[in-house]
Amino acid sequence: MRLFWERGYDGTSFDDLTGAMGISASSFYNTFGSKEALYHEAIEAYLRVAGGWFFDALAREGGTRAAFDALMAAAAVEFTRDDQPAGCMISTAATQCSPGQVRVRDLLAGQRTRADAALATRLERGVADGDLPESTDANALAAFYGSLLRGMAVQARDGASRERLREIARIGMLAWPDEGA
């Protein structure tokens, strides 16, 4: 997972993988079947290990804005941790890839779409709870905050500090719909 996160799918060679795992080519194929199958497993592991903060923040009690504030703050921390690669494995991976890797690109695009859907669901709950205006376009607002999160992930990969990401998040929260609208 770490190699794929650091280097991306195309940037991680078969030799990199077998070397990191300390296994032979035949053991690799007997265990995983293919590099792509291992990548799928790595994405699932990432979602379990490193992605839990996303759903934890969305589940936060205290209103929708508080949940999104927590989400943005958590992203600034998670994307800049010293014990893992910078950014988000899913946000920064496979937006461009070779024609033979369309399935990998589609897998990650699907994960990003699912994340935006989770944001929209939380926003829709906020509308139902009355802490967002009924006129709120939950899908558009989810796409905005999803884009902001992915942009923060790219900024982190480019070396932005945690403080810089916090400032980006603060500015992003200025776009929050006025409850009185």
Rank of each mutant, 00 (worst) to 15 (best):
F79Y: 07
R65Y: 12
M152L: 06
G22D: 13
E6L: 14
A50N: 13
G130M: 09
V127K: 05
T12V: 12
D131Q: 09
E134I: 04
V49S: 15
D69H: 09
L17M: 15
M72S: 06
A138Y: 04
F14G: 10
R48T: 08
A120C: 03
S135W: 00
T136M: 02
E41C: 10
G180P: 00
V127I: 10
T12M: 15
L38M: 15
L119I: 01
W176H: 01
S98N: 08
A42L: 14
N139V: 02
L141V: 01
Q84T: 05
A143C: 04
W53C: 05
G8K: 08
L71W: 12
A57D: 11
A153R: 00
E179H: 04
R112V: 06
Y46I: 08
Q111T: 06
M21L: 15
S27V: 12
A160L: 05
D129V: 05
R157W: 06
G11V: 11
R7V: 08
L3K: 09
A115E: 07
A142L: 07
Y145V: 02
Y29W: 12
G22P: 13
L3Y: 10
G33E: 09
E36H: 13
F144H: 04
I23G: 14
D158G: 08
V49Q: 13
F4I: 07
G100Y: 11
V154D: 01
D116A: 10
G180E: 04
A156H: 02
A37I: 10
G52I: 11
A73S: 12
L165K: 00
I43W: 10
R103Q: 13
Y9A: 09
H40W: 12
A57S: 14
D56N: 14
F144Y: 11
C88K: 02
A66R: 15
D158H: 02
G180Y: 03
R7S: 13
M89E: 03
A142I: 05
L3T: 04
D178R: 11
S13H: 15
A45V: 08
R125P: 01
S27R: 14
Y9H: 10
G172W: 06
R162M: 09
D83Q: 07
A117H: 02
A45I: 06
A109C: 09
A37P: 06
W176G: 00
G11Q: 12
V77L: 12
M72T: 03
L174D: 01
A160Y: 06
D82W: 05
I168N: 00
R2Y: 13
S24L: 15
T95P: 03
A59N: 09
A142E: 02
A76H: 03
Q101W: 09
G63K: 00
G33W: 14
R150S: 07
A57W: 14
S26T: 15
I23P: 14
D137W: 08
W5S: 04
E44C: 11
G11N: 13
P85A: 12
D158L: 13
L165W: 04
E44V: 13
A153S: 05
G63L: 07
L148H: 01
V104H: 09
S13Y: 15
D129H: 12
G180S: 08
L3W: 14
A74V: 04
E179S: 03
T95D: 07
A118T: 00
I171C: 10
D116C: 10
R157C: 09
Y39T: 05
G180F: 01
D158M: 07
L47H: 07
L38R: 13
